[in-house]
Design a protein around this nucleic acid. Structure first.
Lengths: 227, 227
DNA sequence: CCTGTACTGTGATTGTATTCACAGTAGCTC
DNA sequence: GAGCTACTGTGAATACAATCACAGTACAGG
């Protein structure tokens, strides 16, 4: 069992990849690169140098090149990187070249907001089904997705081939729910509930604690006053 | 000007604090510590050892002690840490011992979800006012907070003494909005918009890109298959 | 075809965060 | 009150990430 803290993800053996070791922060930056590359592509840019791309993303050119080099050589030495091809490549690396089914647990305020968030579909994630414990919500349709009860958990997850879930439920009973989802074969959890969860070692958890972010900012502002 | 990437915060001089240097990840973990401490306090626990507290939070005991030692010595050598007192102390360090006013920009789906999110008030953050460009929303009241137009930006921020804002608007025109907010004296930005922003050097930005988190998980699951 | 230019990819270096391991000690036991 | 236990706080060691700096090269220009 592993426990995750903050936005840190643990895995028992992340270094056993075919390519060189890829750090977690490199992965996070890949998303940013792709977003900017798509923007450039829309603007009709064909090639971009590490300099310019790095400036647009907000990292140093060296870091950008280092990040990309983890996956091989893509850049043409004097033209730079092919915008379209690089965007596709990152998509393939991330596994977002094909649409993936995702399930949402908890159709409260936050859950409904996530349902109507366009960003997921844009990035290749389709919220295929939603779940809630509230029997009043079960059976209703939210933003085009049917809300199921927990009794249908295993069958629905299998039916839609779900391997990633988003947790936006109440903290009560969260761990038991996670255990059941993991037993159903889900490997990845995006957790918005401010409650630590434990998973089998081969699962990945990404915690997003919104209040903690504000607390961090509060600390930074406060401590900067004394400078 | 500084640009932030992922969930990384930059500051021009974070090391110029009175106490020892406090790392950003230490700050993130403080929130987790406090949450667990409050839980223990509710359960009537008076003292806790670094061992147990660390296990509950999901970090190593050494890291917990190191984190706390950045702020001085709090633990009693054989009893451990006083649960109540330590919780209060962390609150004071974070600046969440007194309620702080926060403003929300963008009352779309995500914005409304954040408005009804109880976690903010629990952690000492009060969303005092909301803003939106949509004239149809201006003047209406969402979850008890009046929605203002951008023309009232400077006066309302000053009136409620706002020093931190949450960004949940559309990407269009975001940078211009941020510039104006910063000019009005706001130092901290919690940005949910998947768009990079630039701020004066004395400001702090915390980006939360929800899709990027899912992409990261997607990559991890995919790369773990090969192990 | 040859030379110059400016870019990528990466070894070496620096900087930062985590972990180890132990000195020092408060409290408990007898 | 003396001795034992097991904990904290922290210097030292390690692991990890970012940056520097340059060797090697694809192309442009003549």
């Amino acid at each position: 069992m592993n426990q995750q803290s903050g936005s840190v993800v643990d895995s028992q053996a992340p270094e056993k990849r075919a390519d060189k070791h890829v750090s977690l922060q490199t992965v996070e930056r890949l998303s940013a690169y792709r977003r900017v590359l798509e923007e450039l592509d829309r603007d009709g840019v064909d090639y971009v140098h590490s300099h310019r791309l790095a400036a647009l993303v907000g990292v140093t050119p060296a870091q950008l090149r280092r990040d990309l080099s983890s996956f091989g050589s893509f850049g043409n030495i004097s033209r730079g990187y092919n915008v379209y091809q690089m965007g596709r490549t990152i998509g393939r690396i991330m596994g977002t070249d094909a649409t993936q089914a995702v399930a949402l647990f908890g159709v409260g305020d936050l859950g409904r907001a996530l349902l109507s968030y366009r960003g997921f579909e844009e990035r290749g994630f389709h919220i295929a089904a939603t779940f809630d414990v509230d029997s009043e919500k079960v059976g209703r349709v939210f933003a085009g997705r049917r809300c199921y009860g927990l009794d249908a958990l295993e069958t629905v997850l299998a039916e839609f081939d779900v391997h990633m879930v988003v947790l936006a439920s109440r903290p009560e009973g969260l761990q038991a729910l996670v255990d059941r989802i993991a037993a159903a074969g889900v490997r990845a959890f995006l957790n918005f509930v401010p409650k630590r969860i434990t998973t089998p070692a081969d699962c990945f958890v990404e915690n997003t604690d919104i209040s903690a972010k504000l607390e961090k900012l509060s600390f930074l502002v406060r401590s900067a006053i004394g400078t």
